[in-house]
Amino acid sequence: MPVRVLVESSTPSQVSGANSGHTSFQACTLLGIGQAFSGTQNVSSLQKDEAWRVNVRIQGCDLEHGYLCGTMEALNVPMADTPVVTFWEGEIVDTKNYTFFTGKWEATPEDDIRHWTKFQSFSPLMGQVEVDGGKSLDLSNYPYIFMRWKEQYFVNVGTDCGLTIAGFYYVCFSCSDGSISGFYYDPNSRFSSFSYCPFQKLELKSTNDGRSGFSFPSYELQ
């Protein structure tokens, strides 16, 4: 989800390191393609409390490469006439393709740890992550999936919409109930800086289009 433009955005640099030899990452059906989530992103500042309604849809998933992507729709953005849709790409922290250390987007290992520790489910992993970014952890059976979501472009509005997608989200997905928590991080935005306001928290729940249960569409690229 975009945030207000405040400072110049930064350019992403290198991809994280990778290693091999881990058990392959298991799919979680609730994080499959076509799945939808809805909730809010808290964008409160010292001046006022504010939360935007947010919808997310998973559009692509490639576990082998630790890749996930989809769209994020912000519904009641004050300066926008219509809901603002962005396309994001996600890095799954599978310790094979990506570790807990971002290694780019101006996020230092300290920034990483500061954000990951906001998730309760991260605490058992903390010790090892401090040592090697979690490279030696086997998360294939861990009931939480940690990711970084980086918005890539605006789908339905121009870049002159007064919003920025320069930052990225630290995300934690619960495989049990399909809930998603996330924290937005943009080193150049004072809105995401700790000294000015709390972390911008994203909270989403799995949705089912008003059905009495869960439905799973699918496509297969050739």
């Binding site: 076509g34 289009d209 008003g210 059905r211 439905s215 799973f216 569409p217 699918s218 496509y219």
Partner: peptide
């Protein structure tokens, strides 16, 4: 079958 799976997905 995958086609039908998608057809019955979406609105009720």
């Amino acid at each position: 079958l995958a086609l039908v799976r998608n057809v019955v997905d979406g609105c009720m």
